[in-house]
Design a protein around this nucleic acid. Structure first.
Lengths: 228, 228
DNA sequence: ACGATTTTGTTAACGCGTTCACAAACTCTT
DNA sequence: AAGAGTTTGTGAACGCGTTAACAAAATCGT
């Protein structure tokens, strides 16, 4: 239980704010775009525009990583790209296991965007015996009962829940029991996990419901769409 | 151009914070769960636990809508459910058009969670002629060129981008031209839209990259996984 | 009827994140 | 070499969201 936070013991910056961490992949993508355009150097203004953020915010975010720019010049695109990639662990590939090979799980397993961002779908798992053994996106679907073996053998630390909401907690428990310490939950249910396990939630319905709220607000000004 | 914000002219509360709006669907789901369990009344503690938030936060959120609870008693589940549903526009169904019927678009069109949350996939659109005319989730795929007609005929105000990143801006432009005023963007690219159009972004890779960052942090304590 | 108990609605403090503004540091021109 | 022009890195102000704390208002028990 080495809980010691080690405040900047080595060179690496520690304690990067969550909001910044969430933006680093965006910067990385923007830098990749600049590289493809043949841009070798960029200012914080350039990069901020590419990433769709305030330049000051960008600079502050980068300052948490270190001083990788040059005053009066800007940032070396390739150098900064590598530094961010190293910081967020994208110098290596991360294996993930997807639980639930329905429509969403299948789509995720085929998602093109993962491989270029250091994410590799290493295994597919489903509870339905009819699905076990079938091949999806080139991967043979395994049984949920084999989860522990799969996770241990391939040293997987990230799991994705793409099941119905009713199965989410059960799956989460099994993932944790298998040694998974990070979970991305697409199921419309919140899962309880022990300390030390990270959970992020993506809720497709809620995103649309939020948009619907704003739509109603817009319409309300004109036609006063009351629930008469 | 009635930009007047009308500070609580009628009964409806105005200016609900974004963070609160994002949680209202969660409360709604929690309330539905309580209804299914046959619970008729609940305290803020009960509901907050179901929703996975702080009770004080829940009460503050609800206070933006009005005073729908009873001191010493709690909230009537059905009554509160209706009030929230009305506030976020879920007393009606919202039609959405999904652009891009690849793996992700197909999965979204089949997603069970939408219908129970007032979201109805009203149309599917794709630029690929081979896909146009095929039937996906019971819906005939239309051509991207027919977008304007579809949106106008069915009075759709919400669009979903489920295309590759390279097509995202082009699709967004077409959606806006067709009259769409809210966009949910799944493509790994940021899109520019004029004022008055809301865009929300869901980035599947980034969610996993954020988890990978934390995984690296965890592992770093033990094996100092340096990029030597 | 009245005090004890429960629970909401709200105010105030706190913390985090964003943004501004500017000194430090670099390049370029003359 | 020195000043003008750029651009980074960061300290400070600001704003939003979260949380704690408590008064107001209802029920319950006697």
């Amino acid at each position: 239980m080495t809980i010691l936070r080690s405040p900047l013991a080595d060179g690496s910056a520690r304690g990067i704010p969550d909001a910044t961490v969430a933006r680093l992949p965006i910067y990385l993508r923007a830098l990749n775009g600049l590289t493809e355009q043949g841009v070798a150097t960029c200012s914080s203004n350039d990069l901020a525009e590419q990433a769709g953020v305030n330049p000051a915010k960008l600079r502050k975010d980068l300052s948490y990583l270190g001083s990788y720019g040059t005053r009066g010049v800007g940032y070396d695109v390739e150098y900064l790209r590598y530094q961010i990639a190293r910081e967020i662990g994208q110098t290596q590939d991360w294996d993930v296991v997807i639980v639930g090979v329905g429509n969403l799980g299948s789509a995720l397993s085929a998602y093109q965007g993962f491989s270029t961002r250091g994410i590799r779908v290493a295994a597919l798992v489903d509870a339905d015996p009819d699905r076990v053994g079938t091949i999806v996106s080139g991967i043979t679907v395994s049984s949920l009962d084999d989860l522990i073996t799969i996770v241990e053998d391939r040293a997987i630390s990230i799991g994705v829940i793409a099941t119905p909401g009713t199965a989410a907690q059960e799956v989460a428990d099994r993932l944790v029991a298998a040694g998974i310490t990070s979970i991305l939950n697409f199921a419309p249910a919140l899962v309880q996990v022990p300390d030390g396990v990270d959970v992020r939630k993506v809720d497709l319905s809620i995103e649309l419901q939020i948009l619907a709220y704003h739509e109603q607000r817009k319409a309300g000004s004109d036609k006063a769409g009351g629930a008469a």
